Simulated scan of single mutants.
Amino acid sequence: MEGSRFVLVLALALTAITPTLSTYHSATLLNVRHREKVTHLHFYLFDIISGTKPSAVEVARPKGTKYDKSATPFGSVWAIDDALREGPEFTSKVVGNAQGLYVSSVQDENSLGLVMYADFGFTTGKFNGSSFSVFSRNPIMEPGERELAVVGGRGRFRMAKGFVKVKTQFLNVTNGDAILEYKVTLVHY
């Protein structure tokens, strides 16, 4: 018994001090040309906070904001699973959903701004199973269109880059429900 422990300890010690030979490996494919494609998308995002089945829910609120009565006090975090529809009506066909987070990032109580990460996935049509990702500042209170950055994609939008023009179509300032028009320009392979 004592001898087998000694052999085990000796084997572990020798393993620990034995040099290991390894090399970093990478491969680069030369002369492979991918043709970039440009895709334009147009849809409406329904961000619903009210009701019995909201598509956006607050998941965190920092201490010190419990008396802040605004819909999105500074530092609050919201999880979203918003419907993407062909038109601005609730009866419009659903084409996908946007899932992700947004964080209230403006301290001024008279303004509203978010930092948003969302993956816009499509569930119908030729882009079914594909998505693009947005990670950007979203200054909600700016009039007209706002621009967000596209930082990636998958499926038919693999390696996407581009931008989104967002315009608020409807905003209920009482409960925070919103319908947003998205015009997207994607450059991808």
Rank of each mutant, 00 (worst) to 15 (best):
K66W: 09
S111V: 08
V106M: 07
P62S: 12
S55I: 06
S55Y: 02
S92M: 05
G100H: 03
T72P: 02
E89S: 15
K53I: 06
T65W: 05
P88E: 11
A79F: 12
V103N: 01
E58L: 05
E86I: 15
D68A: 08
S104V: 07
S92D: 07
G87R: 11
L101S: 03
A118R: 09
L112R: 14
M116S: 11
I49Y: 06
N110D: 13
Y102E: 00
A71G: 09
N110L: 13
N97D: 02
L101F: 09
T72A: 15
I80Y: 02
E58W: 00
K63G: 13
F74W: 06
V106T: 11
A83I: 09
S50R: 04
S92A: 08
I80C: 03
T65K: 10
F90S: 15
S111M: 11
I49M: 03
Q99P: 00
S55N: 00
G96P: 02
P88I: 13
P88W: 06
L84T: 12
G75A: 07
S92Y: 04
Q99R: 02
E89V: 14
A60C: 03
V94H: 03
N97R: 08
R61Y: 07
T65A: 01
A83Y: 09
S92R: 06
T72L: 06
R85S: 08
V59I: 13
D68F: 07
T91V: 10
Q107C: 04
W78L: 09
L114Y: 09
M116P: 05
V103K: 00
G64P: 04
E58Y: 03
D81L: 04
Q107D: 04
G113I: 14
N97I: 07
I49R: 08
V115A: 10
P62H: 12
V115M: 11
V57P: 01
G96N: 02
S55A: 04
F74H: 07
L84I: 14
Y117R: 15
K69D: 14
V95S: 00
S104E: 02
T72F: 12
K66N: 14
L84C: 06
S105N: 06
A71P: 02
Y67E: 14
E89D: 14
M116Y: 14
S105T: 15
D81M: 07
K53H: 08
D119K: 15
E86P: 05
Y117K: 13
G96Q: 04
S92K: 04
A79W: 00
K69E: 14
A60S: 13
K53E: 06
K53Y: 04
A98H: 00
D119C: 12
L112Q: 10
G51T: 10
R85C: 10
W78E: 05
A79Q: 10
D68N: 13
A118T: 15
A79S: 13
V57N: 01
A60V: 09
T52D: 07
P62E: 10
M116I: 13
S55T: 14
L84F: 09
A71I: 15
K93G: 00
D82E: 08
A98T: 01
T72M: 10
F74M: 11
P62Q: 12
V115E: 03
G51K: 02
V95F: 03
L114H: 10
V106F: 07
K93S: 07
E58D: 02
G64R: 09
E58T: 12
Y102L: 03
E58I: 05
Y102H: 05
